[in-house]
Design a protein around this nucleic acid. Structure first.
Lengths: 154, 154
DNA sequence: CTCATTTCATGCGTATACACACGATTTATC
DNA sequence: GATAAATCGTGTGTATACGCATGAAATGAG
């Protein structure tokens, strides 16, 4: 059982720890860690279709829909019919949503700082690089097959 | 928005990608990625109490219970009353559970290899080190406070 | 020994995560 | 322009993830 075999568990442990900590931090705002991710994604590109929103989070379209329903009830996002595609619905941050997100961003600063300090700030860029390569590798190609170059433009 | 702010999203993306890929890989065995983690934990230390099992995964006790109920139905684990503590119940891999876990371990080899190769094998140890430090930092101390040395022996 | 505190498992409620199927609509093909 | 194929949202079902409350049993203090 070399290091290779421990990597998945280490990744899992780190993610769950972050997720728990974030949930606790945002709980006083009535927001979950995943809802924060959705709001952050919307704040960087509004009027996205639900599908595009799901792609960017990344998350599942049906999960995103459930989250949007909850956030809409709280008045933080608005869903409108897409102007040119009547199948699709666009999601947008409301004014209250933008305000709330600013508060959440500030509240999350302590976690981001703690994470950065835990690994020494000079290692952050490298860690991001490694995690990104992991994600691309696991998302991109099907297992048991060679690597297909697949570029997805934004 | 420096690198520090991107780290949480990178960690999330990498974990979810791994989780999805693992779920897909284990689906043909009727097992989820999280159930695999539970079986792996039991295979390395049997007759654990549910609480100790939850601590090692790491996961929530009530979540672990739900998982054990499902795995017990499949005949992969057994739950017995703790010999000296009648409150507690111990979980143990059944013979079928050990057999199944061996199959799952082999099936998961391609994912572990893919992950290792994606970041170059020589970076695996370092990535584990960084992730471990992240998890310890996020789990250990309460936010806004200094670091308490807390050693938990196994 | 008695009582308060802690610890364990359980049950309930909410929010994710995802697969899958369905209907509606857009796009592609002829 | 009619038909087939791809795409979007919705709804359902299962499995996590976790907080919180409850009851039972172990532990500690007196």
């Amino acid at each position: 059982m070399g290091d290779k075999d421990k990597l998945p568990l280490a990744l899992r442990a780190a993610y769950l720890a972050m997720h728990r900590r974030s949930d606790a931090e945002f709980a006083s705002f009535g927001i979950t860690a995943d809802q924060f991710v959705l709001l952050a994604t919307l704040s960087r590109g509004s009027a996205l279709t639900q599908r595009e929103l799901a792609r960017r989070m990344p998350s599942d379209p049906s999960t995103v829909r459930a989250m949007l329903v909850l956030l809409e009830k709280q008045g933080l996002v608005e869903r409108d019919i897409h102007p040119s595609d009547s199948r699709a619905r666009t999601a947008t941050l409301s004014a209250a949503g933008k305000r709330k997100f600013r508060q959440l961003w500030n509240a999350g600063e302590s976690i981001r700082t703690k994470m950065s300090e835990a690994i020494q700030p000079e290692n952050v860029a490298m860690l991001i690089e490694l995690l990104t390569r992991l994600a691309e590798s696991l998302n991109g190609e099907s297992l048991h097959c060679s690597n297909q170059t697949q570029t997805s433009e934004v």
